[in-house]
């Protein structure tokens, strides 16, 4: 602190620059610089003014909080892992169920199907082919590995399908089938074709009845005809 001085010195002009004024300016500038630096530094470092005991307490509380949070992390990680594995399990089960549902849907004829196979066209000018002959043909095709069978593009042949003679017509699963009969089969094309052309096989037995049969192998057959799916009224699954 400047001590009071008793001598009366002549007042200097404020615009006259002297060395001592420059020194005063430098000191004040240094003070301003230091204050600015310290204030900015305080913004970044909150703990420089905290005493040791307080710091120890702070550290302890942070340690315990850290421990608690670590425990929480472990718990939550366990939960997450459990959920992940159960999700994976249920995804797997869902995938299997979907696959199974697709298989069953094709078997039951509730969805369309496509794949390689053969097309058997039966010309029957003498009207000698009856329901039993068609049923025989279907049985032979099944024997040869047919997976999906449809007749004339309207009647899908599944386990429940019945064949019926009805006044000069044939009914397959309730649907009227007109001549010529066109049987579309999905399965191993070459195996099916050989099986139907086998001596004494499908082609022979149909031609013996005066029909002409054309068998065509196809790379892709698309069957859109669906069977009427009825839910069983009496039967219940045992498992």
């Amino acid at each position: 602190m400047p001590e009071p001085r008793t001598d009366d010195r002549p007042k200097r002009s404020p615009f006259k620059v002297s060395v001592s004024q420059l020194v005063v300016a430098a000191l004040i500038g240094g003070l301003a610089f230091a204050i600015t630096v310290q204030v900015r530094d305080d913004d970044t470092d909150d703990y420089s003014g905290v005493r040791g005991d307080d710091l120890v307490e702070l550290l302890k509380s942070l340690d315990s909080a850290n421990e608690r949070l670590n425990g929480q992390i472990d718990d939550l990680t366990d939960t997450r892992n459990g959920l992940l594995s159960s999700t994976q399990r249920s995804q797997k089960a869902q995938k299997q169920a979907k696959q199974r549902a697709e298989q069953l849907a094709i078997l039951a004829g509730s969805v369309g199907a496509s794949g390689p196979g053969i097309e058997v066209v039966v010309q029957d000018p003498n009207q000698q082919i009856d329901a039993a002959a068609i049923l025989d043909a279907v049985e032979e095709l099944r024997d040869a590995g047919a997976e999906v069978i449809a007749i004339n593009g309207v009647a899908r042949v599944v386990a429940q399908t019945y064949f019926l003679d009805d006044a000069d017509q044939i009914r397959v699963g309730g649907r009227e089938i007109k001549r010529p009969y066109r049987i579309e089969v999905i399965g191993d094309a070459s195996g099916l074709a050989e099986a139907v052309r086998f001596p004494g096989g499908l082609v022979d037995s149909l031609e013996n009845r005066g029909a002409s049969v054309i068998v065509t192998k196809k790379d892709k057959i698309t069957i859109t005809a669906l069977a009427d799916v009825k839910s069983p009224e009496y039967a219940r699954p045992t498992s």
Binding site: L27, A32, F33, V37, R40
Partner: peptide, 22 residues
């Protein structure tokens, strides 16, 4: 007048250089 200039220079220098206290 000169000290005020010194003050301004000091503040500006502190703001511009932003040194950390050793």
């Amino acid at each position: 007048m000169i000290p005020v200039i010194g003050l301004a220079i000091g503040v500006i220098a502190g703001l511009v250089f932003q040194p950390t206290v050793p």
